[in-house]
Nucleic acid binder design. Structure first.
Length: 104
DNA sequence: GACATGACCACCG
DNA sequence: ACGGTGGCCATGT
């Protein structure tokens, strides 16, 4: 799988995250690893940083629910607007966590 | 090819 | 709950 295809695979998956739900960088990497072979949370992070502008990037957070560094304000506003359960400055992963096979 | 860097993650004091 | 540490993998010097 070429880098470009990998990027698109990531963006496609992020596009599919339902409103009001979120996914962790590592979660995206794992879900994608089934189709792409290799994956890493760091790589997903970099991809989002560079190509995330065209997808709902705010629905992707760290494994601990922390919002993307440098965009906490923006992300929090959008998440709150979508009704995502927020606990202080973090997302309640247990409640809002999503994975591709959980409802499609 | 070595080395540093990054919207990360799991583990351990 | 929090900071430090080591591991991760692609990219750019």
């Amino acid at each position: 799988m070429t880098p470009d295809e990998y990027v698109e695979a990531v963006l496609d998956l992020v596009e599919r995250i339902p409103e009001g739900r979120v996914m962790s960088y590592g979660g995206v990497a794992d879900a994608l690893s089934e189709r792409s072979g290799r994956a890493s949370a760091r790589l997903v992070g970099n991809i989002m940083a560079r190509h995330g502008g065209s997808v709902p990037w705010h629905r992707v957070v760290t494994a601990s629910g922390r919002l993307p560094p440098g965009h906490e304000r923006e992300a929090r506003a959008r998440l709150r607007a979508e009704g995502v359960p927020l606990r202080g400055e973090r997302v309640d992963i247990a409640a809002a966590g999503w994975s591709p096979d959980d409802g499609s």
